[in-house]
């Protein structure tokens, strides 16, 4: 039995929380706590906190804006400070950016349309906790499903995160107009990853591929040596 301890946060309007919990359970094992957004206190001794995809608070005001101010996020910010790993996927990425835990913002897709399909990604950083299971420049296929995935940051910020190796994944094809095709970003300490594509939807061949597995496997290996 793995010692891995994870929490999956559910906001009102989250809809990928169960998929996320299943992926963590199947690949990392251990104990998974399902945490409601109104909980101000997180379970103890967590290895990973996952913020799932969905449409928290109906995307009111801006995608992720309301969720970023919910009680549980104060505890998440505090956990990030202690070095706990945090993975935000899709709406989870939007929440992390709105909470100021990651640089930049996710804007309406450049083509206005909601994009829901499998896309090719290039793995840019293979040194992080989340991406150590991939090879540099490896192309992987992961689905996206979002309306607001158009990554924006000013040029100075883009130069800085590129220089620091904090671009984890880049789109290998046009998807949503993201600055420099950025699909996933790490924080400065490397314990927070936000990405628009859904690795939890690509964990077994029945889903069309399993390129997402290596991400969860690397996190478990990196944190508890599982």
């Amino acid at each position: 039995m793995s010692n891995f301890r994870a929490a999956v946060i559910t906001f009102p309007g989250s809809n990928c929380d169960r998929d996320m919990a299943v992926a963590i359970d199947e690949i990392c094992g251990g104990t998974i706590h399902r945490v409601w957004h109104g909980d101000a206190v997180l379970p103890e001794r967590l290895d990973l906190i996952a913020l799932p995809g969905g449409f928290s608070y109906g995307d009111y005001l801006r995608s992720g804006a309301m969720a970023a101010r919910s009680p549980v996020m104060r505890a998440v910010v505090e956990a990030v400070g202690r070095g706990v790993a945090v993975l935000g996927v899709c709406n989870g990425f939007q929440v992390l950016a709105e909470a100021g835990l990651l640089p930049g913002a996710l804007m309406r897709n450049a083509g206005i349309r909601f994009v829901c399909r499998e896309v090719a990604l290039t793995v840019e950083n293979t040194q992080s906790l989340f991406t150590a299971g991939y090879r540099k420049d490896q192309q992987i296929r992961i689905p996206v499903a979002h309306h607001d995935g158009n990554y924006f940051a000013d040029e100075a910020t883009l130069d800085r995160i590129e220089g620091e190796g904090r671009v984890a994944f880049r789109y290998a094809e046009p998807v949503n107009g993201s600055a420099r095709d950025i699909a996933g970003v790490l924080n400065e300490a490397g314990n927070v990853l936000g990405m628009m594509p859904h690795p939890e939807r690509m964990i077994e061949p029945a889903q069309g591929g399993s390129d997402g597995r290596a991400l969860f496997a690397a996190v478990a290996r990196g944190l508890v040596g599982a």
Partner: peptide, 9 residues
């Protein structure tokens, strides 16, 4: 600053 506008954009 804290909610109504996202100062990044």
């Amino acid at each position: 600053k804290q909610l109504l506008a996202n100062m990044v954009i």
